[in-house]
Design a protein around this nucleic acid. Structure first.
Lengths: 332, 332
DNA sequence: TTGAAAGCGGTACCAG
DNA sequence: CTGGTACCGCTTTCAA
């Protein structure tokens, strides 16, 4: 069933059917009704490809994420998807696994589609990809990535602030040996988290620190802790780059015979839903994913009244959420 | 940059460029090179809409899931996405939230796209949607859903068997008061899990049982346990419909002052990665998501040699994975 | 208020 | 081995 079929059956031209379906022009009520009856009767759906080709417009957004298995990314994707669907848009996503080459490939793929807008929520970066994004004419949102351009909206979180609050809090509990568990996000934003840790720790001269790195997953968190412990460093507090890795960290610490938080405190980052279901419930830093998704949608949506209202840079303030995985350092 | 631009610059026809790009016919090496040089130089990407329209073919698969937040669905989606991408396909998904109306809408949307194939991995069902799927000419895979048709592959798991093993195991540990925690999946497959529980329990005359229902999430699991406990029923073992809900169940039991597995044993279903990171690590039933994703891809992929090799019905055997959340019932 | 027709950017058949 | 060209299904002027 095509537009043409519908038109024939309704005894009108394809142009009119198109008008009815898109409310793009005033059509006499009677013909309008007639057309709608037919389309419903046959459950007609316009071919998206033809629509996209002809109109040059699309109702599809794209989103690129680093690791969809990590609830942080998944939540944003999910919320954005719901919001977009509600508004009559579709969402397609690509996963990069933190690999710059995959990021570049994903951007190329997305831009070729074409799309109405693209959200790039990744922790890695890649020159050519950024280049293409800035040259692309349509709305782009980048999260924690440096890319400037006319149609680019940047959303950033103040990791450093979140990190500071975490370290300060732990320090106030008496912790003096802290370890940072990160993952192989090779570039900026991740580094930013790690750098933030380093910088913050430096401000506490009596605090010793160490770092361990692995993949972004519970298993990675587990391995990182394993390394750390094997290295001989005995932290009284472990700061994980995110909650996802903290899950594994908690497990490995327990398996190593260390009690959390009695023997060692653990913190995460992101405040994913799971974090309060862990045992012990995780002390972490909240990053409002729902709000981030909303902001992304607003920046992407072309039918904004306050066009460009959401343009430029948006800053997200992180806040510490204290739960059960942190406690005063033991006198040792 | 369009095909035409490339053709002009290379001094050939659009047909030739198309041939080169698709390896669809033999082209003289020299012209082939020339064309490729241009396309790379300008980083040309064919417009997917035009391709889809013209060819009638697509390199896009669709997947519909009930709850993408549940790692069971996410894992399948993720694996399928990777596999598909590797093979040069794209994957788009829709989430239904277990709502039949959303399932119907998702199917309509997917079929209109159009796609090269569609995977429907949901726990609900809807008449019209099933109808459309069977009438659609292209490859369809349904997981745990009843839909028969020429181009439909069905993948089913033997829930009942998994459930039996679980109940038998618990019974052998001395448990006589069991509760089932399910979610509001209104139709078949979920019911199937619950029914499987009921049927299995019936075979053990001395086993008392109860059921609680909530949403498919950790929070839901928590609430279900809350209801259960409030009802006065004191189970010595709790069987959760899936691991995702078990996460919340574990938490609520702990908050209620019950120790797992000392006071009450808990089991899940699916064997999601997280299950071994929980505390205590969850006893569950393994459902091989990677393999399921592989099977789906094979059934969907049009370029199969052993065409139809994966047709008809495929059965997945579940197996019990014993971890720490189950133990002998206490003498009470 | 409606119809006719020109594309949108590819694909694939038919000649040459 | 390569070019010409008729579509694919829909949107959007331009006229009527």
């Amino acid at each position: 069933m095509t537009l043409d079929d519908v038109a024939k059956r309704a005894g009108v031209s394809t142009a009119t059917v198109s008008r009815v379906l898109n409310n793009s022009a005033v059509v006499r009520e009677s013909t309008r009704k007639r057309v709608l009856t037919i389309t419903e009767q046959f459950n007609y759906r316009p071919n998206r490809f033809a629509q996209g080709l002809a109109g040059g417009k699309t109702r599809t957004f794209g989103m690129i994420v680093s690791n969809i298995e990590n609830p942080f990314f998944l939540d944003i994707l999910h919320t954005l998807e719901e919001t977009a669907t509600q508004a009559g848009f579709e969402l397609v996503y690509e996963n990069t696994d933190y690999q710059p080459t995959r990021l570049a490939a994903a951007v190329d793929l997305m831009l070729a589609r074409p799309l109405a807008g693209l959200a790039v929520v990744v922790s890695e970066t890649e020159q050519r990809a950024v280049q293409r994004l800035t040259e692309w004419g349509r709305p782009v949102v980048v999260f924690d990535m440096d890319a400037k351009g006319d149609s680019i909206t940047q959303i950033k979180t103040r990791y450093e602030k979140g990190m500071q609050r975490t370290v300060e809090y732990l320090n106030s509990l008496g912790h003096r040996r802290m370890a940072f568990v990160g993952h192989h996000g090779v570039l900026d934003p991740l580094r930013e988290r790690e750098n933030a840790f380093q910088r913050t720790v430096m401000r506490f001269p009596d605090v010793e620190s160490a770092t361990a790195t692995s993949t972004d997953s519970p298993l990675g968190g587990r391995q990182a802790i394993h390394q750390l412990l094997a290295s001989g460093f005995k932290p009284t507090a472990v700061i994980c780059v995110n909650d996802f890795m903290a899950i594994g960290a908690l497990r490995e610490l327990r398996d190593a015979g260390l009690r959390v938080p009695k023997d060692v405190s653990v913190t995460g980052f992101d405040n994913i839903q799971l974090s309060e279901y862990l045992y012990p419930a995780l002390t972490t830093v909240n990053l409002p994913r729902g709000r981030i998704a909303e902001l992304i949608f607003q920046a992407l949506n072309p039918s904004r009244d306050q066009a460009r209202a959401t343009h430029g840079q948006i800053l997200i303030e992180p806040e510490l959420v204290v739960r059960e995985s942190t406690a005063p350092a033991r006198q040792s």
